[in-house]
Design a protein around this nucleic acid. Structure first.
Lengths: 206, 206
DNA sequence: GCCGACTTGTGGTAAAATTCACAAGTGATG
DNA sequence: CATCACTTGTGAATTTTACCACAAGTCGGC
């Protein structure tokens, strides 16, 4: 039984919703409450969850603490994930400085760049490494996730090297569609594409 | 005839692909070439484009310059779009400094924040305005797009105000599902959700 | 103990998206 | 001018996704 990708992509939203409700002091919820929160249908939430087991009680709804725990287990978020960052530019700096990832169990353990001026420089608690040492460093660190924050022109080449080095998931900030073996997962952060598809619906005069 | 949303979301990718091929010096392409570039099927690209007209020639493929022009027309990218930015934190600063949006015809024309210490301070070429003046400023500027870069706790409230002020598209960087009238489009930039769904497929030993 | 108000999990159904497969058209070649 | 190798655009088939609707279960109140 392989669960559809669209379902998997919604699970983190469910988890976030559960956390938000818990922060409101709630202890239980219902598929309907979550649906209103997330703008989905309650049936979809129930069906999605049913792929992984039965987490609720008829008439009662879902225990938030239990659902929280189960979602983290399913998504393998009940552990820390080490990531490597490639690209020590403005974006790379911002990603290191922001604590968003760390707070959620994702830690950047190495930074790489190709620019000789940047290599060896400190960046937060890390020192920028030479991208030429990518492969050996990754194997040494055992990282499975990489953040790609390099210019568009270099993205495909670096991504291929990451895949060769054993990286199994890439969070891609470069505005390029990566061509990689299917066993490597890619998540594409692409604000420009989002803007460009929204303007389709925007017309200067209605 | 209303075109499915998934199709619209792919058009910017096609546009990006067309630009990349043009930069390689090519003058024509085929659905198959684009498909390989983007990791899609050629039939899908042809069918998507067929929603808007016939842009290719049988046996010949697509003229890149023409397809480029048509995609920009369809997406309303043949003009400049003014945006307002709410949130003058680290992310806001980064968005202003980065020229990515401007290069593609999206310009940030005003910045807002709620922090009295930030209001009145210069930020790039702009001066941070009081978020209390959001509504009047937006109407004055005529902006239809907003970038939401505020903390999660403030996102829904600000988003509702944006919608009231006539904003019709929001690029949301806050880790919150926004609840808005359906005529307001929302694009969600959410690296953490991408990471969290990728870890599903990652198993420490397997 | 029984009723009524809820809620889950799910089989079946409807809708949506993708892919197939092919007629029709194009230009190059000899 | 006939052939060949390509390519588009598109109905039809297939696959995927979302939704409906309801049996079954739970709890609180009286």
């Amino acid at each position: 039984m392989d669960t559809p990708g669209v379902v998997i992509q919604r699970l983190p939203l469910y988890l976030r919703c559960v956390k938000a409700l818990q922060e409101q002091g709630k202890r239980i919820t219902s598929s309907q409450e979550m649906a209103e929160h997330l703008g989905l249908s309650s049936a979809q939430i129930r069906k999605d969850l049913s792929h992984f087991g039965e987490f609720g009680k008829q008439g009662m709804g879902y225990d938030l603490a239990y659902l929280h725990e189960q979602l983290e287990r399913i998504l393998h978020l009940d552990r820390r994930w080490d990531m490597v960052l490639v690209g020590a530019g403005d974006l790379g700096h911002a990603l290191i400085r922001s604590g968003d990832f760390v707070q959620r169990g994702f830690r950047i353990v190495a930074v790489f760049d190709a620019d000789p001026h940047k290599i060896g420089q400190p960046l937060g608690p890390l020192v920028v490494r030479d991208v030429a040492t990518l492969s050996s460093s990754i194997r040494e660190l055992g990282a499975q996730i990489a953040i790609l924050a390099v210019p568009a022109g270099a993205a495909q080449e670096v991504a291929s090297k990451l895949a060769e080095a054993g990286i199994r998931a890439i969070l891609n900030y470069a505005p390029v569609s990566l061509n990689l073996p299917p066993e490597v997962r890619v998540g594409h952060v692409d604000p420009l594409v989002l803007l460009q598809s929204m303007t389709y619906y925007l017309c200067p005069e209605g």
